[in-house]
Design a protein around this nucleic acid. Structure first.
Lengths: 327, 327
DNA sequence: GCCAGAATTGTTTGCGCAAACAATCCTGTT
DNA sequence: AACAGGATTGTTTGCGCAAACAATTCTGGC
């Protein structure tokens, strides 16, 4: 920077001002400085800037152990939005999620003096650990747990779930199984809740949900149990991967979808449209979700208090895995 | 840090030494310092450390526009390995990949004074742009382009592709289509090459490959064209998502897999095992790939010259989408 | 032509840390 | 008992930048 100043025949501080878009610089001077910068291929040193301003212009992301489509897309959205705001993104991933690992991850990010943190780790424990929220670093989570301590960005799982189930009810299904997400995720509970809500409103019986773990494998294994109960003519799955596993179980059992059995998923991952048969599902835009996280974080960085964002609504995408109930 | 020093009754430099595991510290002193650190909940300021040492202990990652399973897993592996080496990870994503956006992304990372860069963007143009390799920051790429300027980590696509095709040949298939990846990816070419190689060795005709774009959609659309040629009894797809699209096209055409038609994919994404029917494919471990990137980067940071790593070999995973050719 | 106030540039200082050098304190040895 | 050489700690300095304050130059209005 000193070299640039010398070449442009100004003080080092003026160079700094040009770099920071200070308003009162003579156009002539600015140009000289810019030319000098270009000539010397000068690049400002972020570390020094951070040290001097105590603003790192970096936000941290905690990613869960498995970067599936949703989290990965959210990460993408976070990075895009952050970079538009002039922020860099530092990422820490979790092998497993418990209070200790999460606290450690947060500590590492705070150690890098990030200005804010986004947790793309949907486990409840993440939201809990976010309480640890160090040193006034605001935390935004994708989890649906509302603690008041940090902002939470999410889709409305209860309503999405209700709508998915209602779609099956509208098709005349009376016995609708739910292949649920695992314990430890509020979103699992929300989806169970929405399913029960729709069933209750239609005066249908809500059997015990079948608990899966978000994977296609669990959807397949648990799906076989579901199919052993002949009363079910439809199932609503907590995500598309579970649904895909169920589709395979149905195929192997010789049950034709949607003639004999209807399936609804959740998320609308890119593969959903190319399942056999293409999957009816509730679409969520994870990239937008990631962007919202940054919006919320920016608001917090501007001193606004944590506030509830209106949840987004998943959209029903009808494909050919659902049809009227067999008579 | 000064506060810690005062509380522990030592100089600030001694605190610094404790923090940096300097060898000659009296155990007693070290303990006093550590206690003071704990009491004050002191956290070192990375920016200051970076400024003083001109080592950021950060590596940068350039991620391509779509974080599908492979890149996401690789990112995960990179982060894990980097954190084990005591490095943080900064990420920049690309909306689209061309020389300009890539140069920009690299510049942003260099601006954050990362010590090394991993490009998880498989386009050829990435490898090309890596030439821009600023200021002695070593670059490692996942692309298979070998430039000598930077290290490239990859699976052996040619051999994997050959093995996949050979599997179909062994099953007695004579007309084997290839649903290829798009132009601009060396890996696309490698897979075409391996497919041709196997076909040539078996004295079979290699028709023109059908070009897709890695998506299930393209596999579906292009798949219909493939199926319009009745000679084909099998297809080798450049990735699992293309294969999944093809499976849907086969289903809709009433062709039963694997009785009428065999399909092989590439990657072994988690969904592959739960396609209808489960997909035979070539498994790659992307997480390991990511780890290798960091290994290579660490070697470079230790002053070793860029060197060719021996490529990893994808493993054939046989499932039920392949069977002997119909007679 | 003179002045208030704005525009423009310069000077000094400190952010938090580790490198370089210096000083002191040990230990076993002769 | 005096000393070499290692062990242990302290002091000074600068990394590259922006904040705070100071100085100078310009502008329009009278």
């Amino acid at each position: 920077m000193a070299d640039v100043a010398r070449l442009a025949q100004v003080s080092q501080q003026t160079v700094s001002r040009v770099l920071n878009d200070y308003a009162f610089i003579k156009p002539d001077t600015r140009e000289r400085v810019l030319k000098a910068i270009a000539n010397l291929d000068y690049r400002p040193n972020m570390a020094a800037r951070t040290l001097a301003t105590s603003r790192s212009r970096t936000i941290g992301v905690v990613a869960s152990d498995y970067l599936s489509f949703g989290p990965a897309s959210a990460l993408f959205g976070v990075e895009q939005a952050a970079s538009e705001e002039g922020y860099g993104v530092s990422i820490v991933s979790l092998r497993e999620s418990n209070r200790l690992t999460i606290a450690e991850a947060l500590a590492r990010l705070v150690g890098q003096s990030v200005e804010g943190i986004v947790m793309i780790s949907p486990q409840d424990v993440s939201a809990g650990a976010a309480f640890l929220s160090f040193e006034n670093v605001p935390v935004v989570t994708l989890s649906s747990v509302d603690t008041g301590e940090h902002t939470s960005i999410m889709y409305d799982s209860v309503e999405g779930s209700r709508a998915a189930t209602q779609h099956l009810i509208d098709l005349g299904h009376k016995w609708i199984a739910h292949l649920a997400g695992p314990a430890g995720f509020t979103v699992s509970e929300s989806r169970v809740h929405g399913w029960r809500k729709a069933l209750g409103a239609a005066h249908l019986v809500a059997p015990d949900p079948y608990v899966c773990d978000w994977t296609a494998e669990s959807g397949y294994v648990v799906g076989k149990q579901v199919l052993s109960d002949p009363r079910f003519t439809a199932a609503y799955c907590a995500n598309d991967r579970i649904a895909q596993g169920l589709l395979l179980a149905l195929y192997e059992a010789g049950r034709v979808v949607p003639r004999d059995f209807s399936v609804v998923g959740f998320d609308d991952v890119p593969e959903a449209a190319y399942c056999v048969p293409p999957l009816t599902t509730m679409r969520q835009d994870f990239t937008k979700l990631g962007r919202r996280c940054i919006e919320a974080l920016m608001a917090r960085l501007n001193g606004e208090p944590p506030q509830e964002a209106d949840p987004l609504l998943p959209v029903l995408i009808q494909r050919s895995s659902t049809a009227p109930a067999p008579v």
